[in-house]
């Protein structure tokens, strides 16, 4: 069995020890990107112009540090903050926060609703049973709302000619970022909603709806208002209606376990199981 023969051309490579790597990082391109993108030098050797399909393209949207993400999350809870509408865009929008906010919310909804369920079952002397379907329901609901709605809204605005072609002002990443960060308030609320008192849960859901809805409106309305046609502003009603529907679905599906004693005469037996209603 004959193996490969080493050919002469390969030997020539080894005879040139002084190969130098050329740097492609011209200062001009850095300044060009410094306007829109965070350029803090974490990814020093990242190529600046990469295609949509490569992983490097998305690295610019994950160029954040811990403090920035935490500040952006907390910022959405405080409408009086001076940076209320600008913190998540400055210096550049990121995708880390929105994605993990949504994912955390899914798991928080599942964990807290199953915890609330077991507490309630324990208090009302019911055998505990679990509903793993809630996990996939939460996943579908949250990802559809948190990613689908901004993408559709952006598509409508973009192809209706309301926002510019270059993504200046309001790009896809900004849209997803607004929705993602707006959902942050639901994470602490879903934990607090373990408290099995009907009134407290309604108040908490209302507060979360108000905070996240206000954040959405404050961010989306200026974009809609910049259109020439006045009718575009009516889209904000659709956004608000969708948000209210989501809040109601959260309340009904995940925050609705109540203590029901078997010996409570006022409740009919058929609804006395602590299933979500």
């Amino acid at each position: 069995m004959a193996g490969y023969v080493s050919i002469e051309a390969d030997d020539r490579l080894e005879e040139q020890p002084d190969l130098e790597f050329k740097t492609f990082e011209a200062p001009a391109t850095n300044e060009q990107h410094g306007v829109g993108r965070a350029n803090r030098g974490y990814i020093a050797d990242a190529q600046r112009s990469t295609s949509f399909w490569s992983l490097d393209y998305y690295q610019t949207f994950f160029d954040v540090d811990t403090k920035t993400v935490l500040f952006r999350c907390i910022n959405t809870l405080n409408p009086l903050s001076p940076t209320y509408t600008s913190a998540h865009l400055n210096p550049a929008p990121d995708l880390y926060g929105p994605f993990w906010t949504l994912t955390t919310l899914i798991f928080a909804l599942f964990i807290t609703s199953s915890l609330a369920h077991s507490i309630v079952s324990y208090l009302s002397d019911d055998p505990v049973s679990y509903d793993f379907a809630l996990l996939s329901v939460a996943m579908g609901l949250v990802y559809t709302y948190g990613i689908g709605v901004p993408v559709i809204l952006w598509g409508v605005l973009r192809y209706g000619g309301i926002i510019g072609t270059g993504g200046e002002g309001w790009g896809l990443v900004e849209a997803v970022g607004v929705w993602g960060y707006a959902m942050f308030v639901w994470i602490p609320v879903s934990i607090l909603c373990i408290i099995p008192i009907r009134l407290v849960r309604w108040i908490l859901t209302g507060v979360a709806f108000g905070l996240s809805g206000y954040f959405l409106v404050r961010n989306v309305y200026p974009v809609l208002a910049s259109a020439d046609q006045k009718a575009v502003r009516l889209l904000i009603v659709i956004v608000a209606a969708l948000h209210a529907a989501l809040a109601l679905v959260f309340k009904v599906m995940f925050f609705s376990y109540y203590i029901i004693r078997e010996d409570d005469p006022k409740k009919p037996i058929s609804t006395s199981r602590s299933f979500p209603r």
Binding site: D65, T66, K67, W100, T103, T104, F107, I111, S114, Y130
Partner: peptide, 23 residues
């Protein structure tokens, strides 16, 4: 500055599995 950002998904990922085992 961002090691916490990389660790947090791990916390979440293993916690949800641990939770499923627990309940």
């Amino acid at each position: 500055q961002r090691i916490l950002l990389a660790v947090y998904p791990l916390l979440l990922f293993y916690f949800i599995l641990a939770w499923m085992i627990l309940i």
